[in-house]
Design a protein around this nucleic acid. Structure first.
Length: 326
DNA sequence: AATAATCTCAACCGCCAGGAG
DNA sequence: ACTCCTGGCGGTTGAGATTAT
């Protein structure tokens, strides 16, 4: 048979750890190490599950942990790595000395996601929202394009509403917008949220009709207008009139301007891979996915390879960052 | 000042791969 | 060969803190 259960579920304490418990756990581990988590709470005199002890130690008590704010360099590293490996928090944390996967995950979910959204970047794909919309537009037949704004709204509504409500961006209704498109989206809802939603719809639909916004033939075409906007130096987004810039100059509306952030956030013009695909590639589980020009599952094992594919164009010192991953 | 809304982050949950038995 | 525990991981929750109204 297997092994005995790690702990008695009904006889363990849960919730916040007290300083006394922390002391017991720390001093026990200092003497005996972390060999067997099932035995540690029992031997240390703790009414905790071994799993809970392990979590407390790895996420909080370990002496090599940093507990302060994330530095800008750390944030950049997180975003870069996230664009490559997706939500592999342990993998990302391994590149940041003193940070745990929980730290990185929390920081991403509470700060960095919003920061990227605020810059007009989809935090899942690391592409500009407008770039994504242009890609969608090229995949639709003309009758379907009329519904693009609706579809995009479904994807990005939360981020857009967050921008509108928290950042107080004033979307101005454009009287000159093509009426046949507007008529498709405007409905007679009166409450404020729906009004906001309609404004978003209107501006999204307008954005995709702007000639300079649309790609010359593919959205990621390096010769196209989209790429001129987003590749390499990563210039600016359509919403930058409201204060968001995405170039080598300022981007934020919160005063956190002119940082090296702006050079790091953009995945460049080549990415057509979703975060999920990146993860699958990392695992090497998929040999022939939709991003065939990349190295498939072998990319991550070769460290720098993944940074050199057509899917992700980073200016990363890839060997440094990926050493521990390989 | 009181209340509501929002944010932060420690802790938990459940799943999985690897391996002990 | 099989069972199932352990350790690790990512997703989610909720209490407390902070901010807005």
């Amino acid at each position: 048979m297997g092994r005995i259960p790690c702990c008695e579920k009904d006889n363990v304490k849960r919730g916040q750890w007290t300083p006394e418990e922390d002391n017991k756990l720390s001093s026990y581990i200092a003497q005996h190490g972390t060999r067997n988590w099932r035995l540690i709470p029992k031997n240390a005199g703790l009414q905790r599950c071994g799993k809970s002890c392990r979590l407390r130690w790895t996420n909080y008590l370990r002496p090599d942990l940093k507990h302060g704010q994330f530095s800008e360099a750390e944030e950049q590293a997180i975003v870069k790595l996230h664009s490559v490996v997706g939500n592999r928090w342990a993998l990302i944390a391994a590149q940041l000395p003193g940070r745990t996967d929980n730290d990185v995950k929390n920081h991403w979910n509470t700060k960095l996601k919003k920061k990227l959204s605020g810059m007009g970047i989809d935090p899942v794909t690391h592409k500009p929202f407008s770039h994504l919309m242009a890609e969608i537009a090229t995949t639709l037949a003309p009758p379907q394009v009329a519904h693009l704004a609706e579809a995009a709204l479904g994807c990005f509504k939360d981020e857009m509403l967050h921008l509108l409500t928290k950042k107080r961006i004033d979307f101005q209704l454009q009287q000159s917008a093509p009426m046949n498109t507007i008529a498709t989206y405007i409905t007679s809802k009166n409450d404020e949220k729906d009004d906001t939603t309609e404004k978003i719809k209107l501006n999204l639909s307008k954005a995709i009709q702007e000639p300079e916004m649309l790609p010359s033939n593919k959205p990621w075409d390096p010769t196209g207008a989209m790429s001129a906007n987003f590749a390499g130096g990563c210039s600016r987004f359509p919403i930058s009139d409201n204060g968001f810039h995405y170039g080598t100059t300022s981007f934020g509306n919160d005063g956190a301007a002119s940082s090296t952030w702006s050079q790091s956030m953009c995945t460049g013009s080549g990415s057509t891979c979703t975060a999920r695909e990146q993860q699958r590639r990392l695992h090497g589980k998929v040999e022939d996915d939709s991003c065939e020009e990349s190295e498939g599952g072998k990319g991550i094992r070769n460290g720098s390879t993944i940074f050199n594919t057509d899917c992700v164009l980073w200016d990363l010192p890839s060997d440094d960052l990926m050493n521990h991953i390989v």
